[in-house]
């Protein structure tokens, strides 16, 4: 065992793990409030803010193609379809807590729950 790990190794690994767990606990407190709406950003620009209370389907378009399909349903928001190779954004599941985020890296789409009021950029929504 001593060839693999010594006491100070275990201490350092434990400290790093503890840092992770402490941030996890802090984060659980920070992200405990329910948010009112979701803000959708694409390539650094805000596309719109949509209320979580109203069921809606939002299609994100890029160069004339629908790249992401975001669904708001029963107070939760989730990514239903994505035109990307890894589909990580779909696996990120449903969100409704303030600050929670769905990210689609390849399409550079960020969906985050906020407390902002709904704003009108409804030209893209369908």
């Amino acid at each position: 065992m001593s060839k693999w790990l010594k006491k100070r190794d275990i201490i350092l690994i434990a400290v790093l793990l503890l840092v992770g767990i402490i941030t996890l606990i802090i984060w659980a407190f920070i992200y405990s409030d329910k948010g009112k709406s979701v803000t959708i950003e694409q390539r650094g620009e805000i596309i719109g803010t949509y209320s979580l209370d109203k069921d809606e389907t939002i299609n994100i378009e890029y160069k004339g193609k629908t790249v992401n399909k975001i669904i708001i349903e029963d107070g939760y928001c989730y990514m239903q379809e994505a035109e990307c190779p890894d589909h990580l954004c779909i696996k990120q599941g449903k969100i409704n807590k303030k600050g929670q985020t769905i990210v689609c890296m390849p399409n550079r789409v960020v969906v985050s729950v906020t407390d902002d009021d709904e704003s009108g950029y409804d030209s893209i929504a369908s």
């Binding site: 992770g20 767990i21 941030t23 996890l24 992200y31 985020t101 990210v103």
Partner: peptide, 27 residues
């Protein structure tokens, strides 16, 4: 760097999970 490129602070939400998985995968 992802936060810098996306220009959104929201990505920090994934920090704890990434730190813990970093330790586990590193081990």
């Amino acid at each position: 760097v992802a936060m810098f490129f996306f220009d959104t602070p929201y990505l920090i939400y994934y920090l704890p999970v990434l730190l813990i998985t970093g330790v586990v995968t590193g081990a």
